[in-house]
Design a protein around this nucleic acid. Structure first.
Length: 637
RNA sequence: GCCGACGUAGCUCAAUUGGCAGAGCAACGGAUUUGUAAUCCGUAGGUUCGGGGUUCGAUUCCCCGCGUCGGCUCCA
């Protein structure tokens, strides 16, 4: 007799040993049909796993994260099977599920073409229709090793060779295709229906550039056609929001082949948005007790020798240039400069905390292949700050920084946050005591605000623990912009200190933090987040006055000037075009408000506002519209 | 940097097997005086990414370079 405990606490009793599929069937027909796999005492297993003892089980369907992952992983196997059928000389390597889909890396004598992808996808459909059972078998490690060697699957053999000898190895077979895999998988290939192959790319064996380069085929897979279509639609939407396209169409910024990759040119309209962002940033920093600094963009290389960047960061730095026969370095970071300022005075424990912020432009060498619009560039401005404080002030400072971070992100329309806390890695500097105290202070500061966080054990930098904040944009993508890092290293290296209560020298704590990270990248995220439809407070042009005929030119000009006098960004379009033409043009430029003025409005001293969505408010006095616009701006809408 | 794809007017894209480099939109000029997403006519616009090669002839084929795009952590 086997007693099976379900997640809701209920217990099912079976006379004979039973498979998970049997348990699902006993619960209900619907579940039996939807079941993909299950967990037994918390461990994921296949549906045909036989239960012989009393256990806790759950049935996994495609509705859960785990189930979706199984669908994707199984689809990657289906693809590998299809590839092996069409291209028998291709060697399989690894093929995991990833966010939104899966990939599989192959070693093949020639590059896969888009036509190959279409053929592979068609083969996958055919295999899916055959409903081939996916069966788990086990082998001894050595047996498996010779099995894959005999098949000519040398990468698989290499993987097995790294597994301890005594371990048993699981294989999954569907049709003639056998793959080394931990599983679990769907019961048969007919469960895999909604997938699409997306792209082929290069990827190194085991992610190491010294190893052989393989071909990675990316695909997406979903529980059903509807979810797949939804995702493909989202991809199309994301493309429409692409900041590189919108940046050109809205005349916000450009990059230039002549100037070099990854160097951003802000056009007048983009610069207006940046001005707004920077003004806001300065205002909230001053209010939060920060001082604003300005420091140079280059400095003697020795500074980076002292900071240690030359040792551990050199590959991301531009080559030095010679100045009066001395090597000078264009800065990849701002921190050493702030430390130089710190060291111009003797500091007392009573001076702390010192909060110093700078919109510091830095230059980092990124490999040419990784440059990407505003998201990955070689020159960018960080909204950087360094806080110097005593150990007992860490928690309060982190708490204040978190407050500033979240309120700033909220102002820019982000309301969903994910907080990660990264703790001490194996290789690190600083004493156990300071790491423990600092990590505890970070945790305390987060939970005191009632925020949840994910702990990345050992994921911190060698010089201190850190908090990262991720935001979610309108179409559900996550971005990490904000980072708060403690640094036990630089204060040592620069030998900075303060005079403690006892009159002795003490090492201050240094906190690095950035809220938006890179202004360039943050701008790119904002463009995509709003799809170019900036809220009034950010919009480069907040309203355009449109005339019906030349007879209203004087009134339109007056309206424009009155609104400008209030500090609003307003233009007038006096061209002798039909109003429909002007509306279309400025709507495409994503101007939030269009103010139509015809004879009637001129006579009444009014404007007739129309918003981006095409809704007309009807004629109203200029002052009334101005109030509304100012209110929108204040409320950051 | 590496793998693959791509590079034609400001933008989106054409150009038989290698045979005079084109269209729409944008720009510019003129006409038009218009009431809520495109008025009409005209003009100009090119070292086909750069360099080399094959050829009577190269946007097209080959080689080199540059740039752009998709990737290069997510362990069977």
């Amino acid at each position: 007799m086997v007693q099976v405990t379900l997640p809701d606490g209920s217990v099912k009793t079976f006379e004979q040993p039973v498979t998970l599929a049997g348990v699902a069937a006993a619960i209900g027909q619907g579940l039996a049909k939807a079941a993909l796999a299950g967990t037994v005492d918390g461990e994921l297993v296949d549906l045909d796993h036989l239960l012989e003892r009393d256990t806790q089980v759950t049935i996994v369907t495609a509705q859960s994260e785990a189930g979706l992952k199984i669908v994707r992983h199984s689809t990657s196997h289906l693809m590998a099977q299809a590839v092996k059928r069409l291209f028998p000389t291709a060697q399989v390597t690894i093929g995991p599920a990833v966010e939104n889909g899966f990939y599989y890396d192959f070693d093949f004598e020639r590059p896969f073409t888009p036509d190959d992808l279409a053929a592979i996808e068609a083969e996958m459909q055919a295999l899916s229709q055959q409903a081939l059972p996916v069966q788990r078998t086990e082998m001894k490690r050595n047996e498996a090793l010779s099995f894959f060697e005999a098949q000519g699957e040398l990468f698989k053999a290499e993987i097995i060779a790294a597994i301890p000898e005594e371990q048993t190895i699981s294989l999954y077979q569907q049709g003639a295709f056998v793959d080394l895999c931990r599983g679990p998988h769907v019961p048969n290939t007919s469960y895999l229906k909604a997938f699409k192959l997306l792209s082929v790319a290069g990827a190194y064996w085991r992610g190491d550039a010294r190893n052989k380069q393989l071909q990675r085929i990316y695909g997406t897979a979903w529980p059903d056609k509807k979810a797949l279509d939804g995702y493909l639609h989202q991809l199309a939407e994301a493309e429409k929001r692409d900041h590189r396209r919108l940046g050109r169409e809205l005349d916000l910024f450009s990059l230039h082949e002549e100037a070099g990759g990854g160097l951003v040119f802000w056009h007048p309209m983009g610069a207006r948005v940046r001005q707004v962002i920077e003004s806001y940033w300065k205002k909230v920093h001053v209010a939060a007790g920060y001082e604003l600094l300005f420091t140079p963009h280059i400095a003697n290389l020795d500074l980076w020798r002292t900071s240690g960047h030359l040792d551990f960061y050199q590959e991301s730095m531009f080559s030095p240039m010679l100045v009066d026969e001395q090597p000078y370095q264009i800065r990849p970071m701002n921190c050493p400069f702030h430390i130089l300022i710190y060291n111009t005075h003797l500091h007392s424990h009573r001076d702390f905390p010192l909060r110093w912020a700078e919109l510091g432009t830095v230059y980092r060498y990124e490999m040419s292949g990784v440059l990407h619009g505003l998201f990955r560039v070689r020159g960018f401005t960080q909204d950087d700050a360094h806080v110097f404080c005593r150990e007992d002030q860490i928690e309060a400072e982190i708490s204040g920084i978190l407050e500033l971070t979240l309120s700033t992100l909220q102002a820019f329309g982000f309301s969903e946050f994910e907080i990660n806390l990264s703790t001490r890695p194996a290789k690190s500097v600083g004493s156990d005591a300071i790491w423990n105290q600092a990590t505890a202070a970070l945790k305390q500061a987060i939970s005191q605000r009632g925020l949840a966080f994910v702990e990345d054990v050992g994921g911190g930098a060698f010089y201190g623990p850190k908090i990262d904040v991720k935001i979610t944009d309108t179409i559900g993508r996550k971005w990490q912009c904000s980072t708060i890092q403690l640094d036990f290293n630089l204060p040592e290296r620069f030998d900075i200190y303060y005079i403690g209560e006892d009159g002795g020298r003490k090492r201050p704590i240094m906190i690095h933090r950035a809220l938006m990270g890179s202004l360039e990248r943050f701008f790119g995220i904002l463009i995509e987040h709003y799809a170019g439809n900036f809220p009034v407070w950010l919009a480069p042009v907040q309203a355009v006055v449109l005339t019906i005929t030349d007879d209203q030119n004087d009134w339109a000009t007056e309206v424009r000037d009155r609104l400008r006098a209030l500090g609003l960004r307003v233009d007038a379009d006096l061209r002798s075009q039909k109003v429909g033409y002007k509306i279309r043009e400025h709507t495409l430029k994503r101007v939030p408000w269009l103010l139509i003025v015809g004879e009637q409005e001129k006579r009444e001293g009014a404007v007739n506002p129309r918003n981006r969505a095409g809704k007309s408010l009807g004629s109203m006095p200029v002052a009334a519209f101005a109030d509304q616009l100012l209110l929108e701006e204040t409320n950051k809408h």
